[in-house]
Design a protein around this nucleic acid. Structure first.
Ligand code: SF4
Ligand code: SF4
Lengths: 157, 157
DNA sequence: AGCAATCAGGACTTCTGCGGTCCGATTACA
DNA sequence: TGTAATCGGACCGCAGAAGTCCTGATTGCT
């Protein structure tokens, strides 16, 4: 159904939750705040910390803290942190495993266009746009960006 | 890894293969032409026929035939035919199953923005753009379309 | 220094749904 | 009318995701 993993969904929720209230929040605290199982939230936070989206503080009175502002985190970063790089099919650049029918496939390599289109669509939306309790400042800025997808299509071959 | 199902990938390959050579082609014939297991190709063709992307002809001398031109089939149609409607998360409109944390979630409903962005990115690319042996006529046309994503973001709320 | 709280990392189990396979229904052709 | 070719839908196994748990390392507080 072309759905992204549940963990990625949770990551967005967790990050937005982190932007509310206290600056540094603990893993069980966040889990309780959004009514999600604590171990799962912890797993998400670890992945986010590993990729540098949040900074962690160990020990008593520790917790997690946002590393950047919400408006500086595009959706692609969250997806990349949890699910790894965006690779719609096996033959796009970056996905190690190759397709077995790669030699005879008449579409070999063409998926890169679609892949980039999706990547750019996701890169234009930041977490600030996802927050229900924030103004829509960023959206207007996005409207002034050129249509990068079309440029990609034209430049291709 | 935000990847779409293998079947969808195969569907694109099959459709493009169908646009080459004979107008009506049989399921094993196509499978042999692209070196993919025959039952799998047959399954893909069935799904495509069910959703009207190809028309089927039963009986001897039967087979499958393209229902429309490649340039009239956006990627979204292929995805919808195989994987069902595009629904990145559980809480987007159209996905029957709801999320359990839906009442307390601070992102509830915001995924629609991302969902539409991806959908529109995929809708702008047709199978004709994926064919390696075809001219890139459509790409230039896409460049002249307005940036629908930004408009969506602005109009939201 | 001792203690309690918290994160880090990995191993393990469960389960959905994708990928692959099969046999019966249908239709043109001789 | 018989036959062969082909589509249609139902079936099952398995990889990968989702979720859980445990042990060890680190740090603030008393
Ligand atoms: S080579 Fe062809 S069949 Fe293989 S992943 Fe790429 S598009 Fe799909
Ligand atoms: S309601 Fe929140 S947690 Fe549930 S699917 Fe939607 S965004 Fe994700």
């Amino acid at each position: 159904m072309l759905r992204l993993s549940k963990l990625t969904d949770y990551a967005v929720v967790v990050l937005i939750r982190l932007s509310h209230g206290e600056a540094v929040q603990t893993s069980p605290g966040i889990a309780a705040g959004i009514g999600l199982p604590e171990p799962t939230v912890a797993k998400v936070l670890k992945a986010l910390a590993y990729s540098g989206l949040v900074s962690s503080q160990r020990g008593a009175r520790g917790g997690y803290r946002l590393a950047r502002a919400l408006s500086a985190i595009p959706i692609t970063d969250v997806v990349a942190a949890i699910d790894g790089p965006i690779a719609l099919t096996a033959c796009v650049e970056g996905s190690g495993a190759g397709c077995e029918a790669e030699c005879t496939c008449p579409v070999r390599g063409r998926w890169d266009l679609v892949n980039d289109a999706v990547r750019q669509a996701l890169a234009r939306i930041t977490l600030a746009d996802m927050d229900r309790s924030a103004p829509r400042a960023h959206a207007r800025a996005a409207a002034q960006q050129p249509d990068a997808l079309a440029l990609t299509l034209i430049s291709a071959e």
